[in-house]
């Protein structure tokens, strides 16, 4: 078994299958802690974890904060509006402040692709990408993979269908890298206007219809459709989007009977997913949330290696 050697987690594209397995394996004992009455271990006492969020995301931030607290780290939140980025408040200046504060791990959510790469180059602290623009959202993909592995035992050989706005989805990108590295087949499906160019080079198979994508799938991952994409002219109407790409019970019957239905949240019920499917027996959407904390604990633990910065 290997050890973790990276300073940062910036994306899944450059991770090996072994590294992904290590994270998922480490999340298993972390999940056991979540099942205890006293959800706390002393592992990261004295460490400071900073969540630096340039986009509002209560659920991801809370998940990281709980993960830090359960491991006894001190956590500090800095939330900044996306507009401050545009106003030219330098990420690097903020980073230097964080370093001066003695942050050991910085969790960055940023509206622009590559911002965590810039931050990681600037500071000695470990950087975890909590979603950057339309680039990657590695912790979401890891919790998705953890959830699927827990239910299916194995990721290799599974067929995963990702449906929706692939173009703007960092979740889709990270899941494509992660699942394909672990030996699963990934299908992507969505409006042609929201399909990134040459996506098949990532290893994903492009399906033109949702029926094609769903047939025989072991995992169905629905993406949130941002309603403002309609104003940008990327699809004609919510009605037509739901008609062509919405998941309902009838369509779900094309997938394997034991298929898992997932959604990174927050859901547009009745648009990309019908309520009866979102709350149905195949849905593991609520478990995704619990597993998110376990996976993030695993990452905080692994990335806190290498001794204290001043030790």
């Amino acid at each position: 078994m290997m050890n973790w050697k990276r300073k940062d987690l910036l994306g899944l594209k450059d991770l090996s299958a072994e590294e992904i397995k290590l994270i998922l394996d480490t999340a298993v004992p972390m999940k056991e802690i979540l099942g205890r009455r006293i959800k706390k271990v002393p592992t990261l006492r004295g460490r400071t974890v900073v969540t630096l969020f340039y986009e509002p995301s209560t659920r991801t931030r809370t998940s990281f904060e709980l993960a830090a607290k359960y491991l006894s780290a001190d956590s500090v939140n800095i939330s900044t509006s996306a507009s401050s980025v545009v106003k030219g408040e330098s990420l690097k200046d903020t980073a230097r402040t964080l370093a001066a504060m003695g942050a050991d791990v910085v969790i960055l959510r940023h509206p622009m692709a590559g911002a965590p790469v810039l931050l990681a180059r600037t500071i000695r602290a470990a950087v975890i990408n909590a979603g950057d623009g339309t680039h990657e959202h590695p912790t979401q993909a890891l919790l998705d993979m953890f959830t699927v592995r827990e239910k299916k035992g194995e990721l290799a050989g599974l067929t995963v269908a990702i449906i929706g706005d692939i173009l703007h989805s960092r979740v889709a990108r990270s899941n494509i890298w992660g699942f394909t590295k672990m030996g699963a087949r990934v299908r992507v499906c969505g409006p042609a206007t929201m399909m990134p160019p040459e996506i098949e080079v990532t290893g994903a198979q492009v399906c033109l219809s949702i029926e094609e994508a769903l047939t025989g799938a072991d995992v169905v991952m629905m993406l949130r459709i941002q309603l403002e994409r309609q104003q940008q002219g990327l699809f004609p109407s919510i009605r037509e989007y739901a008609r062509l790409f919405g998941l309902n019970r009838e369509r779900l019957s094309l997938a394997r009977p034991d298929a898992l239905v997932m959604h990174p949240g927050p859901m547009n019920r009745g648009v990309e997913i019908s309520p009866e499917v979102a709350d149905g027996v195949n849905s593991v959407i609520n478990e995704q949330v619990t597993n998110g904390v376990a996976v993030r604990m695993a990452l905080l633990y692994l990335l806190s290696g290498g001794g204290m910065p001043d030790a």
Partner: peptide, 23 residues
């Protein structure tokens, strides 16, 4: 019992030891 998360030497190790399940 896996005691890894309770070790007092984590801050001095170059790499984090593997964590196993406590059952």
């Amino acid at each position: 019992l896996d005691i890894t998360l309770y070790r007092d030497d984590l801050t001095t190790l170059a790499q984090q030891p593997l964590v196993h399940r406590t059952e």
